[in-house]
Design a binder for these strands. Structure first.
Lengths: 339, 339
DNA sequence: ATGAAAGCGCTAACAA
DNA sequence: TTGTTAGCGCTTTCAT
């Protein structure tokens, strides 16, 4: 399908050799060819509607100008902005991104990774966790270019671009402390994500710092349902109940909303809730969510920049870029009233 | 980068000819080769960590096993489910999808389209509008396989997969009529989308059917800001105000929420609002949104199915698949009180 | 500045 | 059943 006109068709029409057409049509090499010839070739190409076959070029140059992006799930609202950020850097530089979803399965991840390797992608941006099963380590061993986004590299010396989780959680705890909260609970995300552990650690140390009682409840996934399930469990306990929840991310926080509603509790009057990420529309929720804004688009763009630096400049320094975050106070947190 | 082991390395180790390796490793042709040989080849391939180069294969077979998906903007929440739906059909069949965002610009659309053509994609799924400038028509003329998703093909005989817009709007109007509303306004999306016009037409005819007064206000884009802007304008008018709004989609409806809040009006007590799409989290908004659920994932999967039918079975019938929609009544609509 | 020729890694006709 | 050969469309030495 599509056009059948090749470089030799153009060559014939322009009355030159295919090699010359290639040189004339390539920015890098067009200075090797007579300006008049360049014009003739350009004309011929346009007249024939010639469109270079980048598959063929890729085969010859062993570069596909394609980048693989591996994420858990596109429908998690933090990923679209990250992907658009990646695109915004890559597209103007001639690269195409291919996004795949693992749905949290290591088996999927491996399969998709291999399929992208077969497609000769020039590098990977990993937005997935890093457990023992993850392919991140293997990718590095194989000499494949890669960058972690929104995740730490877990020992593998790939560059990583992350939000300042520690600082974000600390700001949340401080905010709640100032509102008079004394008993907090943190819903920690799955341990396979580096961010989960960083956030939980920061929660604990921040609680200590502000002299608060902080406990941690573990979630199996970053999802609304799991947040609800775990919050249900927290509310079922008979020990002293928290007056505020610091959720591992906005999805979990939303699950907390659901749980509270089911239990006839009001947010924020009965329990304050803080999310993490400031994902799209979290300001439109009921109630508008107090959360930590992570610059998702910038995260994506920066990770793309670091990847191209590896691909094009062979710069393999394992930098770790930490982007600043900001607590956005909305209506899901309020002063504690049972002082 | 990555592996440097080719099909002839495997051939050497297995003591056979490269052609035989190719046949042994391909599902379609492995029955043409001795079972023992197949095993030897497989072993050799595994030992060397051989991974076929699908670029090279694509060059030879002139098929890239890649599909281009052109949408306005991934961060519009209706698209992630559609994309995942597409993937869910394509991935198990060996295809990879490449998603690009036009941001509503015809120039971008054209550029991205050409870049995907150069990459030899086997077909396109168009989720963009269809104005005069759109490349949809040109793509068809060039004999390129394609399918419209969530949009009508606007005269081009590509298959199209859409939700039942007419029925959805009709159900919304009926619902409002039953709640006693008599003066409705519809926020119509940009005319470049076929859906906009279908929904507006259905709004008008449904209002007539139920004996209601219905007016239409035109929006320049499907966005929250535009919904707010247009609703501001509606509220500024001095003629008799509507008691309910039928928004062209959920984003516009969210903009209406914002506008009402700015004007000190309550939803639904002062004005009822109905959205369209039931995009992710619209049940978590403030208030939870009454809206029309469109089966986005199925839309995507079905469009992928129709595309593969064209690619693999050369079936070019321009079917139009209309998927049923369902009104989801939540808390943004209520009985009118100024009877 | 341009032509000639080789070859990227694979598959597919054709032979044997 | 397997080997041989050619070539997908392009880039890139090497000549000229």
């Amino acid at each position: 399908m599509s056009t059948r006109v090749t470089i030799s068709d153009v060559a014939k029409l322009a009355g030159v050799h295919p090699g010359t057409v290639s040189r004339a049509l390539n920015k890098k090499t067009e200075n090797q060819v007579n300006a008049g010839t360049v014009r003739r070739v350009r004309d011929a190409a346009k007249r024939l509607g010639y469109s270079p076959n980048s598959i063929a070029r890729g085969l010859r140059t062993s570069s596909s100008m394609t980048v693989g992006v591996i994420i858990p799930d596109l429908t998690n609202p933090i990923f679209p902005p990250i992907v658009r950020g990646i695109d915004s850097y890559l597209l103007p530089r001639g690269y195409t991104t291919v996004v795949v979803n693992t749905d949290g399965s290591d088996a999927n991840e491996r399969k998709l990774f291999e399929s992208l390797v077969q497609r000769q992608v020039d590098g990977f941006i990993f937005g997935t966790g890093h457990t023992g099963q993850s392919i991140v380590h293997e990718a590095y061993e194989r000499g494949i270019r890669g960058v972690m986004v929104n995740r730490d590299s877990g020992g593998v010396p790939y560059p990583a671009v992350v939000g300042d989780d520690s600082q974000g959680i600390r700001a949340s705890v401080e905010h709640l402390a100032q509102l008079g909260h004394r008993r907090l609970v943190h819903l920690e995300g799955p341990a396979s994500f580096s961010t989960s552990r960083v956030r939980a650690a920061s929660f604990l140390s921040s609680c200590a710092e502000y002299g608060l009682s902080g406990t941690v409840a573990l979630c199996d996934s970053y999802s609304v349902d799991e947040g609800q399930r775990v919050m249900d469990a927290v509310l079922a306990e008979h020990s002293s109940q928290p007056t505020a929840v610091v959720a591992g991310n906005d999805l979990l926080a939303l699950g907390v909303y659901h749980s509270l509603r089911m239990h006839g509790l009001r947010c924020p009057e009965d329990i304050s809730v803080v999310g993490f990420n400031d994902m799209p529309f979290s300001g439109d929720f009921q109630p508008p969510m107090t959360t930590v804004r992570v610059p998702q688009t910038e995260l994506g763009a920066e990770s793309a920049r670091l990847l191209l630096r590896q691909i094009e400049d062979a710069d393999r320094s394992a930098v770790r870029v930490v982007l600043p975050v900001e607590l956005i106070v909305r209506a899901s947190t309020t002063r504690v009233h049972q002082a």
